[in-house]
Design a protein around this nucleic acid. Structure first.
Lengths: 207, 207
DNA sequence: GGCGACTGATACAGTACTGTATCGGATACA
DNA sequence: TGTATCCGATACAGTACTGTATCAGTCGCC
């Protein structure tokens, strides 16, 4: 059997193919955010990306597969970004600085939040995905935990690992909840400030 | 022109019609929660309700209209429930009791939360609905504000109206965020407890 | 620079959903 | 109890989407 026989298993990964795939992923992010995954069609994504449906089916077996690929891509990028932020954080930072860093690192765009809603909704309806989604969120909490601990230590507060995870959960909850409020009331300029305030309160109260 | 001429304007509201409408609404809640609004079809709702598509179009012009009717119905019911809880709350309750009351009043079922996600996602994509959705959330905050104030006063804390609204926002954010975590990790029995803990912290820290 | 492999455009069949039109039968009311 | 009203079942046409099959042009590799 010849080594590079028909691509049934692994089509050669050419530059062109990578480019196509990436543009499809990017277009999918926009379309899913705009219309919602449930209302998005293969045609929508192709039109946005500037490809035909042939190109799509050459790269993905279905919309579901593309959706999952997008989710994987986004979440690994996010974890990497958080890890990077933690790595460059010096010891001795104040709690306010920690909150600023966390807020600055986590995604802020309308599109990313809408996508997150889509991912969450999808996960809640597909238990196998829910497991993966929950694991991803745990990874995120584990990533920000060290930076939170730094801020607490700077304030003279020491906490157990279990308590730290609870604080990380509270931070995640406030982030999710407040960001939804901000999206619903884009005209309310006080909300970002309020969000930071609540985050600081939640962290200090937890320590 | 005869008064009760053709139903073009207002079809007579018979008992039968009310029943049909209610069963369609109930079925819609289940179907939208299960499949998501984007994936739900008129046929799905009819099948679940035990009616034919003719019955559906006799009562609603489109799925969108049914969706909005469901949203209206649910949100007014929720506001009423909260108002009722506030009305029967005696002065002098502790903060923990207040939290318990708030938690007990706000919707808890998986279905109601999934529906809320659908409503939020829809609102974020339709600005005219977003306004209405935001107004509804404001009404809810305004409803729980008095009960929160009661709890704070019992602890000897007095707050301004503005500060009270900020606390209500924090409570809403924690509720939304923590409930999502609970749904994603149904096996984690510690989360409801943690949610109460965070709620208490957020309220006291705000006072 | 030429050849073979593969990408992505186009065409097509099949399916699913929507919305309307029609009509039998149930229901409210005298 | 009779009857006019209208509810809701069924049938149908039109549309949109999916997934596959085919093929021309292009790219990678020697």
């Amino acid at each position: 059997m010849p080594t590079s026989r028909t691509g049934s298993a692994t089509p050669r990964v050419t530059k062109r193919r990578v480019e196509t795939r990436n543009r499809l992923l990017e277009a999918a992010g926009q379309v899913f955010a705009e219309r919602g995954f449930g209302r998005a069609t293969v045609e929508d994504v192709c039109e946005r990306a500037g490809y035909s449906r042939g190109a799509f089916y050459s790269n993905f077996a279905s919309l579901d597969e593309l959706f999952f690929a997008l989710y994987t891509s986004q979440s690994s990028a996010l974890v990497a970004a958080v890890a990077q932020a933690v790595a460059v954080t010096p010891p001795g930072v104040t709690l306010e600085q920690v909150v600023d860093r966390v807020v600055a690192t986590l995604p802020i765009s309308r599109e990313s939040h809408l996508l997150n809603l889509e991912f969450a909704a999808y996960a809640l309806r597909h238990s196998e995905i829910a497991t993966s989604f929950a694991a991803h969120r745990r990874a995120l909490r584990d990533s920000i935990a060290p930076i939170l601990e730094l801020g607490l230590l700077a304030g003279g507060l020491a906490v157990t690992a279990g308590r730290l995870d609870q604080i990380a959960r509270a931070v995640a909850a406030v982030q999710d909840g407040m960001f939804l409020q901000e999206l619903l009331e884009p005209g309310n300029a006080d909300l970002p400030t309020l969000r930071r305030k609540i985050l600081v309160e939640v962290i200090t109260a937890g320590g």
